[in-house]
Design a protein around this nucleic acid. Structure first.
Length: 431
RNA sequence: GUGGGCGUAGCUCAGCUGGUUAGAGCGCCAGGUUGUGGCCCUGGAGGUCGAGGGUUCAAAUCCCUUCGCUCACCCCA
């Protein structure tokens, strides 16, 4: 029989790793809540049409990366490839626009895209993100960028690069596209094959081509800034000024464009250059047409999404992710199978009182059980042997120094609170 | 979807141009102490050499196919 493994691009989060995930998720929720965002949990799958309309039918995500299937009712269903469209759907469906002028939502959970996996890229991956819907002001853009920036700072990531650009509104962007296409048509033959395709399909994508000779040609072309309409220019200037006001460092990247159709005006990415090819921790921007496109009122929006795996990798890389200890406080060792019941009962008592307790295997030698206790990292071993049990006592051994003392069960239970406090004190001293 | 690299013990890897029973370190189990962990010593268990086929007297080693992992392109978190 062949071994069944996880599907390509997926992986198991094992107990030790899960502690890091829990820690990170907790931090994320704390920061988002402090900025006034409410958590929303949308389904893992949606009607396929939501993503076709929301993300854009000609984007790579929709064209070739979605996990789409037909359910038994004949409906086309898709595992969500990103979080914004579902949140916007819920915003419209629950008519949140009628409740407050601005709606601030955050999400955290798995996303699915059928791509070839590589460093920092998976088929099931996890994102957290925010959507601020209903505020057209540049203050909203700045606040969202600041939020991402502050969140990373609170995690200890203080040297990330923020890349910032404006892709204009549908009107001035279209003008730029035509100008760009016209300018590049002449040199089309010198472009790489993918760029030749992009020339027709999505000329903006040419700007961030990694090919050196393409970059050479592109550097001759005027930047998108030259084509911004007065409103777009003003909006972007304001965003930049607001970020400067709160000392957020950013890099203007005139060539930054983003792959999803819904972006307008501000786009940004936060980058860790040590990550490899997939170096964006976070990407986002403004999407003023999206709510309307999805069947809602004409309401502006701005948000970002960040990859949990990439954040965790970055934290590990920078040594911020220390071990999360999950050692038992007490390791109970019954000596002989006759005492197992006693130990079992005592372990239950302690656990019900809220202590972290492991129970040894009474069939094994004391030596063997102590080894296991040692490996578990337990602070105390409680030895339950015939000698002491005849007097209804147990031996409490402090693993750190090897000291041990006999207690009656009642005395032990009475002593535990102090023992645990002393333990926590010495642990915090070490740090 | 395309291209490069890699698949040998639980983990990290060695195994030269094909040559007996495939090795090391760590880990695991047991013993060295009749009831005492960490250090040390001794012993033990554990491998369809990713899978299938081919060449050969002989394949972990050479050839083909396939699967998987990985990195990169495309794209993106």
């Amino acid at each position: 029989m062949t071994l069944i493994t996880v599907p390509r691009g997926t992986y198991d989060i094992m107990p030790k790793q899960a502690l890091a995930w829990q820690w990170l998720e907790k931090k994320i929720r704390q920061v988002f809540l402090s900025y006034g965002y409410g958590e929303i949990r949308t389904p893992i799958f949606e009607h396929t049409e939501l993503f076709q309309r929301g993300i854009g039918a000609t984007t790579d995500i929709v064209e070739k990366e979605m996990y789409t299937f037909t359910d038994k009712g004949g409906r086309s269903i898709t595992l969500r490839p990103e979080g914004t469209a579902p949140v916007v759907r819920a915003y419209i469906e629950h008519k949140l626009y009628g409740q407050t002028p601005v709606t601030k939502l955050f999400y955290i959970g798995p996303m699915f895209r059928q791509e070839r996996p590589q460093a920092g890229r998976f088929r099931q991956f996890h994102q957290f993100g925010v959507e601020m819907i209903g505020d057209a002001s540049p203050v909203a853009d700045a606040e969202v960028i600041l939020l991402a920036h502050d969140l990373y700072h609170q995690l200890g990531l203080t040297d990330l690069e923020i890349h910032l650009n404006s892709v204009g509104c549908p009107h001035c962007r279209q003008e730029y596209k035509t100008a760009l296409t016209a300018a590049l048509k002449a040199a089309a033959a010198k472009l790489c094959t993918t760029c030749q395709l992009r020339l027709d399909r999505n000329p903006l994508r040419l700007l961030d081509c990694k090919n050196a000779s393409c970059q050479e040609i592109i550097s001759q072309v005027p930047p998108i800034q030259n084509y911004h309409c007065a409103d777009c220019r003003h909006h972007f200037d304001q965003v930049v000024a607001l970020l400067a006001e709160v000392d957020v460092k950013y890099k203007l990247s005139p060539k930054l464009v983003r792959g999803l159709d819904y972006y307008s005006r501000t786009v940004f990415e936060i980058i860790n250059n040590e990550l490899g090819a997939q170096n964006a921790l976070c990407g986002g921007g403004r999407y003023d047409g999206l709510v309307e496109e999805c069947g809602g009122p004409s309401v502006p929006g701005v948000g970002f999404a960040s990859g949990i795996e990439r954040v965790l990798t970055t934290l590990e890389q920078k040594g911020i992710l220390a071990d999360f200890p999950n050692h038992p406080q007490f390791y109970l060792l019954p000596l002989g199978e006759e005492l197992t019941t006693i130990a079992f009962s005592l372990a239950t008592q302690l656990r019900r009182a809220g202590y972290i307790v492991e129970l040894g295997n009474g069939a094994k030698s004391l030596k063997s059980q102590l080894k296991t206790a040692h490996k578990s990292g337990a602070a105390f071993a409680v030895i339950i042997g015939e000698d002491e049990w005849q007097a209804r006592e147990v031996t409490l051994k402090t693993m750190a120094d090897g000291n041990q003392k006999r207690y009656s069960v009642d005395d032990l239970l009475a002593q535990l609170p102090q023992l645990v406090i002393a333990l926590e004190k010495s642990a915090s001293k070490e740090e």
